[in-house]
Design a protein around this nucleic acid. Structure first.
Lengths: 121, 121
DNA sequence: CTAAAGGGTGGAGTAGGGTCCAAGGTCAAG
DNA sequence: CTTGACCTTGGACCCTACTCCACCCTTTAG
């Protein structure tokens, strides 16, 4: 799969993919003419990257995860550990969100805004 | 409260607070000598800013929320609407996280990594 | 043969979010 | 009156994540 098709399917620009390649987030073979050639699963991976990113993981973190996956291809245990780690992180974020939600929820209807940045005028 | 104390209590540097002031995220009075003077509630506001930020809201979004709060100080209805909006956003993010979590969870133990960025070698 | 559509490179520029000076004013203690 | 801990400003600089650009090569269609 050439970069253009990958970009179209993953919903990002070619530039972004080349940028991700520099970061080691994706790796492609090269065809004899120098063109990048990506396996079809890269689409799923890029979609995963986008998701992880919107959830607050930096590209560096995501790349690290990817590398760790590549480095421990056989060890299901190691993978489980990695995922468990990420899941714990997600749970923590969800708890934070829940707390913020509860906070906002409590304020709804009370008429008590967060006007904390005004001097008491 | 002077900027140094505020910074210490909010767990950020003075530079960051001055930067936030430029963005309109915090506003302080000035003392006759030119020093910034913040009301004590600013600490809570800054902690709130940090939380919202780690949850994926940009400083611009947070500032907008703050402004809207200031612009509609009396209308509990308007406030409720704003909060309801943020809550909806939070719910959406939580759903995304839950989905990612389920995704990772399903992979744990299956030994099926995300090795989508490798050419099939 | 040429044009269009795809690809490649390096490097500059942007926006967001800080972080770090350097030069200088203010104020309380000794 | 000096020292030290505060504060002020402006501007340079850094990182992240892109985005755009100019310039050049490759492949296919007419």
């Amino acid at each position: 799969m050439l970069i253009g098709e990958l970009a179209a399917q993953a919903g990002m620009t070619k530039d972004t993919i080349r940028f991700y390649e520099k970061l080691g987030l994706v790796t492609g073979r090269r065809l004899p003419n120098g063109y990048r050639d990506f396996p079809p699963e890269t689409v799923a991976w890029l979609l995963y990257v986008r998701t992880a990113q919107t959830l607050g993981f930096s590209l560096a973190e995501i790349a690290r995860l990817g590398e760790e996956l590549r480095d421990a291809p056989d060890s299901a245990a190691a993978l489980s550990e990695l995922f468990a780690e990420k899941i714990a992180l997600i749970d923590a974020r969800m708890a934070e969100l829940a707390a913020l939600r509860a906070d906002l929820d409590a304020r709804v209807g009370t008429g008590c805004p967060l006007r904390a940045d005004r001097p008491a005028d």
